[in-house]
């Protein structure tokens, strides 16, 4: 009986397995193979070389990679600091108001990211919503904050806000109230409780939220293009250019592979560190 169940289970997972293979693994393999082709070829049947990877260092693509990773790191750290109090409130304090907040944040996702980013352009540009009003009232204008690195980080924080907030709230909800109370009872101050109890016990949520926002921010393109005005060229931009205008698929593939490897390594390291089962609601033991 149990063996039959297992066979049926395996059989019913086959279609999904096939889709995963074709839609996920196969393209990755193609990209991996292409990354080891000589520059600017359009076929995988060439003798492999690693000139595309060499271009990463020789032609300065590593700078784009560092910008992407750096801004992703900055936005993740800012997101964590900004989201923690709110997530704490949602998990432990707000009660019914939590659902209002959740809906408010989720509704913002209903509008396309690009449109929301252009909304910020209209708000922040010289002669836009803010500067325009200030100039009309005071006669004095000021420089637009647009097209700079800080504004790119700001927009990354803005766009990936929900991806940090919700996992964090989920993680904090897993911190047992009585453990916090017991810590206070044993003499711990609020800060001690934060560092000794809240942060370690909410770690799964922190890891999931940080990974999501970091991974998405590292591969983000629209923020640097629309609000950043390509002040800095991010790695996703370079990849797109390589595949399109550049007509250099091996270069695009090599850059992709480097990004994928870094992100995968981070993800695997992070996930190995925490008990993901806990946050997914599956309780072992």
């Amino acid at each position: 009986m149990e063996r039959l169940d297992r066979k049926l289970g395996t059989a019913s997972s086959l279609p999904l397995l096939a889709i995963l293979l074709v839609a996920f693994i196969a393209p990755m393999l193609v990209v991996a193979v292409f990354s080891a082709m000589p520059r600017k070829v359009f076929s995988v049947f060439n003798s492999p070389d690693f000139s595309a990877y060499a271009a990463l260092l020789e032609q300065g693509y590593y700078r784009s990679l560092l910008w992407s990773l750096g801004m992703a790191l900055a936005s993740t750290v800012i997101l964590f600091v900004v989201c923690w109090p709110l997530a704490f409130g949602m998990a432990k304090v707000f009660k019914r108001f939590t659902i209002v907040l959740t809906i408010a944040v989720v509704v913002s996702l209903f509008v396309s990211e690009n449109i929301r980013l252009f909304g910020w352009v209209l708000t922040l540009m010289k002669g836009g919503l803010i500067e325009g009003h200030v100039r009309a009232w005071t006669g004095e204008g000021f420089e637009s904050p647009l097209y700079s690195v800080p504004i790119i980080v700001f927009s990354l924080v803005y766009v990936y806000f929900p991806f940090m907030l919700f996992p964090l709230a989920q993680g904090i909800a897993m911190v047992p109230d009585d453990a916090r109370q017991a810590a206070a009872d044993l003499g711990a101050s609020r800060w001690r409780i934060l560092f000794e109890i809240d942060l370690p016990l909410a770690a799964p949520g922190i890891v999931v939220g940080s990974l999501l926002s970091f991974v998405l921010a590292a591969g983000a393109l629209a923020e640097s293009k629309i609000l950043g005005g390509q002040t800095v060229i991010v790695i996703a931009d370079e990849i797109e250019t390589a595949f399109t205008y550049g007509q250099d698929w091996p270069l695009g593939s090599a850059l992709s592979m480097v990004l994928i490897t870094i992100i995968a390594a981070l993800a695997i390291y992070g996930i190995a560190k925490v008990d993901l089962d806990a946050i997914m609601g599956r309780k072992g033991r």
Binding site: P176, A179, A182, E196, P200
Partner: peptide, 27 residues
């Protein structure tokens, strides 16, 4: 509570699940 020289054993015990026995006692 954290400034009172009293202490409680909880119904749930409220042990810290991320710590070892030693770390719990030493908290």
């Amino acid at each position: 509570a954290n400034e009172r020289p009293t202490c409680m054993v909880f119904q749930s015990l409220a042990l810290f699940p991320h710590m070892t026995v030693g770390q719990n006692i030493e908290f």
